[in-house]
Simulated assay, not measured.
Amino acid sequence: MAKPPDAQPGVSYVMPVLNEVEHIEAAIDSLIAQDYEGQFEVVLALGPSVDGTNDVIAAMAEVDPRIRRIPNELGSTPGGLNAAIRASTHPVVVRVDAHSVLPPDYTRIAVATLIATGADNVGGIMKAVGETSFEKAVAHAYGSPEGLGGTQHHVGGKAGPADTAYLGVFKRDRLVEVGLFDEGIKRGQDWELNRRLRATGGTVWFTPELTVVYRPRSSLRKLIRQFVATGMWRGELARRFGTANGLRYFVPPLAVLGIVATLILGIVGLATGVTVLALAFVVPALYLLVVLAASVRAARNGVGTGLWYLIVLPCIHFGWGIGFLLGFLKLTGITERTGR
C-alpha cells in the first residue's frame, strides 16, 4: 500500500556503542520518547563492551523490537556508524552518540528542517551538562571561549549553511552516494564526511532549534584520553587538508609549543643568570593568570566547579595540543599501536 503524501519519512537512529553502561539507557530512552510521527528504528553497532553495556541493551531490545543490534566488527566509531547505516532501512539517518540525550522534539524539528532547506545534513547545539563538580567544569569548558572556543554548535548562532554539524540528521541516499564515513579516520570523521557532502554540491545546515544534551567524561583520566585522541585525529586532518580544516585548530598546539618553549628558556635563564632569557617566564605566567581568571568565572557554577576548572582547562589545552602535534607529525598510527 502506498503511503499518503503527507506521511513522515521513516527514521533510522544509528549509534556505535562501547563501554557506555553509565549513559546508554538514557540515550536510547530519549530516542524511544521522540514525538516524531513517522516510523523509526534504533540500530546499535555493538563493540566488545566489558562493563555490562550489552546486557543493558539486550534487556531493552527484548521489550522493544524496534531496537536492533548488530556487531561492530571494526570496533571503531566510523566502522560502527557505517555498519549501522548499511543495516538501516529508512530514508533519514539520525546519528546519535551514547553520551547524548535528545529532547523529545529533536527528530520532528530536524526532519522538518531537512525537508524545508533541502540540506543533506542538519545539526544543532551540543549542550554539555554535568552532574558532579568535575563534570560541570568540563561542561563549562565546552561552551567557553577559553575552552573549546565557544563555536556555534556549542553556544548557538544564526541558522544557515555550515562547514560541519554536531551529530547530524542525514539523507541516507546522500550518505551512500559519498561513500559513508571514512573508516580510516577514528575522530573528526564527521567534519570529513561533511566536507565530501559539500564538495559534491550538498548543504550542511546548522539550526539553533536543535539542542542535544551531552554528558561529559566522568573522570580526569577519561577526559585526557578523549582530548589526546581527538587532538591526534584533528592533527591528522590538518596534515591532510591544511587550513581547510580550520585555522582555529592550530591555536592549541601553537600555544602548547609556546608555553613549553618559554618555560624552558626561563629555566635556562635562571640557571645561567641570563636575565633576558628569564623574562620568558612571562608567557607561562600569563597563561596561568588566564586559567585563574577563567576558574573564577567557572566558580559561579559552584566552588568545586571552579577548583576543578584549574585542572580541567590545562588538561584540555595540553591534551588536545599534544595530540594534534602527534597527529600532524603522522605519529597517530604509532600511538595507537602502542595503546597510548
Rank of each mutant, 00 (worst) to 15 (best):
G156R: 02
H154C: 11
I224Y: 10
S218T: 13
F206L: 07
A128S: 12
R195V: 02
L220N: 08
Q226F: 12
N121T: 14
T200Y: 00
G150S: 11
H153V: 08
G258R: 02
G235F: 06
A244C: 00
K158G: 00
L175D: 07
G147L: 07
L193N: 12
L223T: 01
E131H: 09
Q189S: 12
P252A: 04
S218Q: 12
G188L: 06
T211D: 11
R225Q: 15
D163P: 07
V213H: 14
S133G: 01
A238W: 13
V129P: 09
F134S: 04
V178W: 03
E236H: 15
Y214S: 11
V178Q: 02
L223H: 03
N194K: 12
G160S: 06
L223I: 02
G160L: 06
T164L: 02
W233L: 05
G143L: 01
P161M: 03
L167I: 01
V129K: 10
G246Y: 04
G149M: 05
T230A: 14
G160Y: 07
D163N: 11
R198V: 06
A238I: 10
G188H: 04
Q226Y: 13
G160I: 07
T117V: 04
A137K: 07
L180W: 00
D173C: 01
T132F: 07
G143S: 03
P253V: 09
K158W: 00
A238Y: 12
S218F: 10
G184Y: 05
D120N: 14
L220C: 11
V213K: 15
